[in-house]
């Protein structure tokens, strides 16, 4: 038996919004540690990894590890039936083929129960080594979203150059070129507005904007985004979900031929 309850459906709705354009199907792994998901997009260029820790739930019961195979589009559609303020319970029997989603209004006057058919999915899982990165940039998530969107008007790729004290995001295309320089904040009152740039060694890498724009669908989950970059390894774009976990995206770089 698996059963968990979150005080606000909003966070799970936003998480589904962050995933559904990138992946069509996925498996939620349920264990005593919480819910987790890892899936590559169909082209095997990017990967999303979600962790929602037990401690962030109101209640969490998992008698036995289970895998819930879901169609993301279906799950997102059902989640949209919840109001943001509703509390939400997810429930599944150990060998069941249904996931129950129960939404309860804050005043307790309305309870909606949906049952979603689960799928038997065999999804490739990749081993992602823990590693130190050459550079880590933290910046307002809305600013990163804006940069990715704006540079998409110029080209298909963004070149990210990190040096001490700042980052250049640049794009080239048939119509022209663009360069956006973001400087590390010297003094900020609000942590959410801060830009921090940690540099162990400067890096310069190129990534497809198409995928970065998919990743920025997670913007409503967190005021800040972190970009971890090292030469010749996938970029990590991470959004922390307060008190609950994270959504992390990995994107393989483009290499000069």
């Amino acid at each position: 038996m698996f059963e968990c309850r979150l005080p606000k459906a909003e966070v799970l709705k936003k998480t589904m919004d962050a995933l559904k354009d990138l992946i069509k199907e996925a498996v939620w792994d349920v264990s005593a540690q919480g819910l987790s998901l890892q899936s590559m997009d169909s082209s095997h260029v990017s990967l999303v990894q979600v962790t929602l820790r037990t401690e962030g739930f109101d209640t969490f019961r998992c008698d036995k590890n289970i895998a819930l195979g879901v169609n993301m589009d279906t799950m997102q559609k059902l989640m949209k039936c919840a109001s943001n303020d509703d509390n939400i319970t997810l429930k599944s029997e150990d060998n069941g083929d249904l996931l129950s989603l129960i939404f309860e209004s804050p005043n307790g006057e309305k309870t909606s129960e949906y049952e979603m058919k689960l799928m038997d999915l065999d999804i490739e899982q990749l081993g992602i080594p823990d590693q130190e990165y050459s550079c880590t940039i933290k910046m307002p998530s809305g600013e990163f979203q804006r940069i990715c969107r704006d540079l998409s008007n110029i080209g298909e790729s963004v070149n990210i150059t990190v040096v001490k004290g700042g980052v250049d995001f640049s794009a080239k295309g048939d119509i022209g070129n663009a360069k956006i320089h973001v400087t590390e904040s010297s003094n900020v009152d609000n942590e959410k507005d801060a830009v921090t740039v940690e540099v162990n060694e400067p890096v310069n890498l190129t990534f497809a904007l198409r995928y970065l724009n998919f990743f920025t669908k997670a913007t409503p989950l967190s005021g800040q985004v972190s970009l971890s970059i090292s030469p010749d390894v996938p970029l990590v774009v991470a959004y922390e979900i307060e008190d609950l976990g994270h959504v992390k995206y990995f994107l393989a770089p483009k290499i000069e031929n």
Partner: peptide, 14 residues
């Protein structure tokens, strides 16, 4: 021309 790498180039299947 920049060529898109795949994730299998960096991570292996578990």
């Amino acid at each position: 021309i920049a060529c898109q790498q795949g994730l299998f180039h960096y991570f292996s299947e578990t």
